[in-house]
């Protein structure tokens, strides 16, 4: 596999304790990689080391398609093609739904899969249509539900034409119907647009549905890696992680 993203030897300490401890990983151009693990395993820290919100304590390299991103600020990493959707949706409350999405296209872009030149507003509408938010384009963001806010965050990410999207527990707090809808949306992004996804998630049903490959983190290190179903059967994984959460999750 030719890697789109390559992460080598990334470590981050908090107060002397390693939150992420010498992680290596690769993501292919159209892959959905799920990262799971117990609370405090370093999943979100790893995402923030990739998107630039955190600086690593030490690292060999983080490259996107060969471009070195180590030490770059988040906006540079975004412009290079890595977008992020955080667990808590980050909205611009002074802007409408459309303006929120368009902002993603103002500083990067064009949206993935769009060839012609579009204004930021047009780009926003394309993406909002794809995600089914176009009927609320002129609404204020505080009128949206949590599910729709996450979709809007994703819309802003897509409007900027990313090659890789980092999703940080975007299913948290959603009801089963919303989870199904979100899974369909994420699959569509990969299948139709060829955008790669790194996905930190606790909702195992969604992981087994979607992920091509799963990495299990524990205490900042990779505990297991491979096909979702196999990994979830792995004895070490069940002991370290799934055992804590009851059989319902392990059954997936």
């Amino acid at each position: 596999m030719t890697a789109l993203l390559e992460v080598r030897g990334v470590t981050r300490h908090f107060g002397g304790l390693p939150a992420v401890d010498g992680i290596d990983l690769e993501v292919a151009a159209d892959e959905i990689l799920a990262i799971i693990g117990p609370n405090g395993a370093g999943k979100s820290t790893l995402l923030q080391l990739i998107n630039g919100l955190l600086a690593p304590t030490s690292a060999q390299r983080i490259t996107l398609d060969g471009t070195e991103l180590l030490g770059a600020k988040p906006h540079r990493i975004r412009r290079a093609g890595i977008a992020t959707v955080l667990q808590t949706p980050r909205m611009f409350p002074s802007m409408s739904v459309r303006e929120n999405a368009a902002l993603g296209a103002r500083f990067t872009g064009p949206p993935t899969g769009v060839q012609e030149e579009l204004s930021p507003d047009e780009a926003a509408m394309r993406v909002l249509e794809r995600l089914g938010l176009d009927d609320r384009a002129d609404a204020a963001v505080d009128e949206l539900t949590l599910h729709d806010k996450r979709l809007l965050d994703l819309a802003r990410a897509l409007a900027g034409g990313p090659r890789l999207v980092l999703l940080d527990e975007v299913m948290a707090g959603l009801n089963p119907t919303e989870i199904d809808r979100f899974v369909a949306v994420v699959r569509g992004i990969r299948d139709d647009l060829g955008v790669a996804i790194i996905w930190v998630e606790h909702v195992m049903r969604a992981v087994t549905d979607l992920a091509d490959r799963v990495i299990v983190l524990e205490a900042g290190r990779i505990l297991a890696e491979g096909d979702a179903v196999e990994v979830l059967r792995d004895r070490r994984v069940i002991e370290a992680y799934l055992g804590q959460q009851g059989d319902g999750h392990a059954a997936g």
């Binding site: 955080l86 611009f92 500083f107």
Partner: peptide, 11 residues
């Protein structure tokens, strides 16, 4: 509105 969100959007 939100400097972190702005950075993440490429600002």
């Amino acid at each position: 509105d939100d400097p972190v969100a702005a950075e993440l959007a490429g600002v």
